[in-house]
């Protein structure tokens, strides 16, 4: 007979689990709201019945081809940005790091623009997101090639900054050389970020990379906690920092690369969300990861619902709205840093 001893649970862990649960419920709720909102009235129940019965009614097509992909991608992209933002802030121990700090976002955007520009996106249906993903993965290889296997954090940041500038310049070059103004405008609109007119194929394309990248990033939670004490202390606690950086760089490339590839550049979510959630997780970077991802999903779904409810047509680009909400928050953050610092 064995005696079952009660395991002491750190209360902070329990609170964070409860927070994740609430955020997951909120995500689910907003998913349903997002599916229910659109430009044409939709009888959801009829659409569901037809969809499940395999009848190609107008309702079921609107649900499966328009509403569902948009809602699912909103959740996926928001999760990706919130998660990676928290991971990058933890890795760099800097509250101003965002998911694109290692150059992945700019590279994914450039990859997609290249697919646009080359005309590939007209020939192959998923060329745009595939180009974005390819850009993100090439960028990761480059960052690692430049910074080296045993690179310190500073070398990684510098490589990321250099890569971002290069990809920004190349994107501008593509715009500059674009054959006609309509192509240029189309690229600019795509870069602003949106979830409109995506299909379930987009969802299937990014689901794998996002799941894999998420697993990689979540596995770094204890190491990120230890990193709170500095690099030497983290290493003395048995964490291999070179491996930690590799996991996070590859994870960020998969997750953020996917997000940018299907939605364009959606700013500020990855920067702002970790700050909103951090105090609720006891400022512990590893524990922040999952709630920050879920809160990202909530915020992005909310923003995407907002652009459809606003009486502005054609609808505002999602990236514009998140930036408009996010930038004032950044001012507030700086003001608060000034007060405490």
């Amino acid at each position: 007979m064995s005696i079952v001893r009660p395991r002491p649970i750190v209360p902070g862990d329990r609170r964070a689990r409860r927070l994740s649960l609430w955020l997951a419920l909120a995500t689910l709720l907003l998913l349903i709201v997002s599916i229910g909102i659109g430009y044409a009235p939709l009888d959801i129940f009829k659409a569901l019945q037809d969809g499940l019965a395999g009848r190609d009614s107008l309702e079921s097509i609107v649900l499966v081809e328009l509403r569902l992909p948009r809602a699912l991608l909103g959740a996926l992209v928001g999760f990706a940005l919130g998660l990676t933002g928290a991971a990058m802030q933890g890795l760099l121990r800097n509250p101003l790091a965002d998911p694109g700090v290692l150059g992945v976002s700019a590279a994914a955007a450039f990859g997609a623009v290249l697919a646009f520009y080359s005309g590939l996106s007209l020939l192959v249906p998923l060329a745009l997101p595939l180009g974005g993903l390819a850009g993100a993965l090439v960028a990761t290889g480059l960052v690692y090639g430049i910074a080296g296997r045993g690179a310190g954090t500073m070398a990684l940041i510098l490589a990321g900054v250099a890569l971002s500038s290069l990809c920004g310049a190349l994107t501008a070059l593509a715009l500059n050389l674009s054959p006609n103004p309509y192509a240029a405008i189309e690229i600019i609109y795509w870069l602003m970020g949106s979830l409109a007119d995506r299909s379930l194929d987009h969802v299937w394309l990014v689901l794998g990379p996002i799941a894999l990248g998420t697993a990689l990033i979540l596995s770094t939670a204890p190491a990120l906690d230890a990193l709170t004490l500095g690099e030497d202390s983290a290493a003395s606690l048995g964490f291999d920092l070179a491996r930690l950086r590799l996991k996070l760089v590859v994870g960020a490339a998969l997750v953020v690369g996917s997000a940018v590839a299907v939605s364009g550049a959606i700013g500020f979510i990855g920067l702002v969300v970790p700050h909103l959630v951090r105090p609720l997780t006891g400022h512990r970077p590893g524990r922040l990861l999952l709630p920050s991802g879920l809160a990202g999903a909530v915020l992005l779904l909310g923003a995407d619902i907002l652009v459809r409810l606003l009486p502005v047509r054609p609808e505002l680009k999602l990236g514009v709205v998140t930036a408009l909400i996010g930038a004032p928050f950044l001012f507030w953050l700086i003001w608060r840093l000034r007060r405490t610092g």
């Binding site: 750190v10 902070g12 121990r93 906690d225 230890a226 990193l227 709170t228 004490l229 500095g230 030497d232 202390s233 003395s236 606690l237 951090r278 006891g282 400022h283 512990r284 970077p285």
Partner: peptide, 20 residues
């Protein structure tokens, strides 16, 4: 190992820092 001029980069609770 305890590093020289060791820092705590996020304002975590003391008992959670010790728990690291």
């Amino acid at each position: 190992y305890l590093e020289q001029r060791a820092a705590v980069h996020w304002p975590m609770r003391v008992d959670e820092i010790v728990a690291l």
